[in-house]
Design a protein around this nucleic acid. Structure first.
Lengths: 197, 197
DNA sequence: GTCTATAGTCCGATAGAC
DNA sequence: GTCTATCGGACTATAGAC
């Protein structure tokens, strides 16, 4: 076996990541209907043949977009949950829920293209969103830890969803300052909820 | 001027409404990418030529979907706001906000296709959603009436948005009972907020 | 692993009969 | 106002050179 199994020791992102980035950019800028293989290849700076080597079909591309999105959110959620449970082998259900919500908020702040994968998948084939539903279901299952405040934490989660979706469709009516106030409020409410468990 | 300007005194819905209904059904069932003129015409029981008489282009069809959706929500919102302000010539800003949120909730309960127009428009041409953004902005402007609880009512509005969008993409992880509890909670919170103004 | 060229399909829009 | 027939364009996917 030779030196490095990961072929990208420099700052150049792997081709797959570059292609997924290009696809997200196109969906946000021009709508899911303009997400064609030609356009993705051109945006990423490769030929159509090069794109089809990594993603044999368009469905494979959409699946890849959804998969990367879910993996990113789940990884962030696990990290935030661990931060909230210092010393614990496994985070509590309440910390897990709070971590998931916090992960969604943080991602929405730093990366507007977040939900582009979901929009493109929903437009092309709604069944591609099944993995997303499973991820959501995990959060709701964890909410069962505190039946007496289920509605409250469910509402907080829905509010974050609403913020994400509004941003995605460019529907958000908030100014930058209004948005910051709402995000701070949501983060505070989530922390308060998880600390009262 | 002759008897009746509306040509449909019987129970048959006008052709335009039937076509818009068919388009919404297709988007929900098969995704925005399958919203073709042929499919809409077949679903509505007319030929493609008949469809193109009422909507000369596909963009006109998408615009019509968005327009009907907005008009319906605004009409419901105005009615709810008037119900909350008995005797007043014009509803207060707080009642207006509460009415808008209540309208969205009620529509989500009785009609799952609600956001299909927005999803289809976003997929085809994001700029078609501009009228939606204007409608949202009206709600936020009305929220300025009570700066001290802006974050709270904004969160409630976002939670309703999240519920609508989750339903639209079939992402809602809630059981029917869980969903009912959350909706009741949201309605109670909105009423409480508007009565404390 | 990436490219060019092309086959085959589907869609939006037009023209014109009834 | 609704229909049929059809054109031109855009798209996905394949084949094969390098």
């Amino acid at each position: 076996m030779v030196a490095n199994p990961t072929p990208c020791p420099d700052s150049t992102p792997p081709a797959v990541e570059r292609l997924l980035d290009a696809a997200e950019r196109l969906v946000v800028a021009r709508g899911a209907a303009h997400l064609t293989l030609d356009a993705v290849a051109q945006e990423a700076g490769v030929s159509k043949g090069g794109l089809l080597y990594h993603f044999p079909t368009k469905a494979a591309l959409l699946t890849g977009m959804v998969r990367r999105h879910i993996q990113d959110v789940e990884a962030r959620a696990a990290r935030y949950a661990a931060d909230r449970s210092p010393g614990a082998a496994e985070p509590s259900a309440a910390c897990s829920v709070a971590g998931r919500i916090q992960a969604l908020i943080e991602k929405s702040v730093e990366k507007r293209e977040m939900g582009a994968a979901m929009l493109a998948a929903a437009a092309g084939d709604p069944s591609l969103l099944n993995p997303c539903r499973e991820s959501y279901r995990k959060t709701v299952d964890a909410m069962a830890c505190c039946p007496q405040s289920f509605e409250r934490i469910a509402m907080l989660h829905l509010a974050v969803d609403g913020l994400l979706m509004s941003d995605l469709l460019n529907l958000s009516p908030f100014t930058a300052d209004e948005r910051r106030r709402v995000v701070d409020y949501l983060l505070r409410e989530v922390s308060e909820w998880s600390e009262s468990r």
